[in-house]
């Protein structure tokens, strides 16, 4: 018995063991660290730099050097005071909301069709998803040729069917061009909605439909009472991602119209591009970039807030 204290003194002090939960948390943090670092370097730093540049009148050669000039709001004043600013906000609203709505509508319709598992559905599935595999610039080029008022297939078909008496100036009329470009981007974007909606549809238990049918519910009632509520969570995430994607879409407009005619398709993202890369005004481009970011974040947060409220109800 006398040896016991001596033995306990000889043993090294054991550190208190981490609990299983704490160890899991540590492991998860370690696993997430590369992603956090990547996000910090590739997202947070460029955004911080963008915000910084927007407050200075810098030349291209000065962007990556220590800034010695005084800060100014001149870029924001110039960007928001430009007569094209409000029209470009309007063009952005049409492009983002109508584009996402159209992509959602086509995506939901095609997902419902695919969910019916009709004969030849595998081929149909491949066809439906194919626009997704086309590069955005190529998709825009395809639509630019299809919608051309001189040799475009769409006008040829419309004229041949007698639906119009003269070619429709899809890309050369300021009243039509924004809708044409919006539709073209929706065509490129809808397969993402199809896939997400199809996954959501397949996660709804079939027993719910069977029970509803036994209760005498018709197709429309089953769609509104079972399908739509089942899709709600997926819809929220998909529309959120779709909105963000549409906000930052610049190549489709640039390829199809370059922002014209008469600046009718000049979205905020296109203005950022034009100011920075065409007019070589990085400060003003950065200010517009920050404003675009604010509008995009505010819109998507408003959407998330609105849809969460509805889900709670």
């Amino acid at each position: 018995m006398a040896s016991l204290p001596a033995r306990s003194e000889a043993l090294p002090r054991r550190r208190p063991r981490l609990g299983r939960q704490a160890r899991t948390r540590l492991l998860l943090t370690a696993l997430m660290l590369p992603a956090i670092l990547c996000t910090a370097v590739l997202v947070a730093w460029p955004i911080a730099k963008l915000v910084q540049i927007s407050f200075y009148e810098l030349r291209l050669a000065e962007l990556m050097r220590p800034i010695t000039k005084p800060w100014t709001l001149a870029n924001y004043t110039a960007a928001t005071g430009h007569p094209g600013f409000v029209p470009s906000l309007a063009a952005t609203a049409v492009f983002v909301f109508a584009g996402t709505a159209a992509a959602l509508a086509i995506g939901l319709a095609t997902a419902l069709l695919l969910d019916l598992k009709l004969a030849g559905s595998t081929l149909f599935q491949a066809l439906v998803v194919s626009p997704w595999s086309v590069a955005p610039a190529i998709a825009s080029l395809i639509w630019m040729f299809l919608l051309n008022d001189q040799f475009g297939l769409v006008n040829y078909l419309l004229l041949a069917a007698g639906l119009v008496s003269a070619p429709v100036p899809f890309l050369t009329s300021p009243d039509v061009a924004i809708w044409a470009v919006t539709f073209a981007t929706a065509w490129k974007a809808y397969p993402f909605f199809t896939i997400m909606m199809l996954a959501a549809l397949q996660s709804i238990p079939h027993s719910q439909y069977e029970a509803a049918m036994m209760d005498g519910a018709g197709r429309i009632r089953r769609f509104t009472a079972i399908t739509l509520p089942g899709l709600r969570g997926f819809l929220r995430v998909t529309v959120f991602l779709g909105l963000l994607s549409q906000f930052r879409n610049v190549e489709s407009v640039l390829v199809m119209t370059g922002g014209g005619p008469a600046r009718s398709t000049e979205t905020l993202a296109v203005r950022v591009y034009t100011e920075t890369f065409q007019y070589l005004s990085p400060g003003r481009g950065a200010a517009l970039g920050v404003l675009t970011l604010v509008v995009a974040v505010a819109t998507t947060l408003a959407f998330l807030w609105a849809t969460r409220k509805r889900a709670d109800i």
Partner: peptide, 9 residues
């Protein structure tokens, strides 16, 4: 071209 395209349209 903003002015000219608006005129042409």
């Amino acid at each position: 071209t903003e002015g000219m395209t608006a005129m042409v349209a």
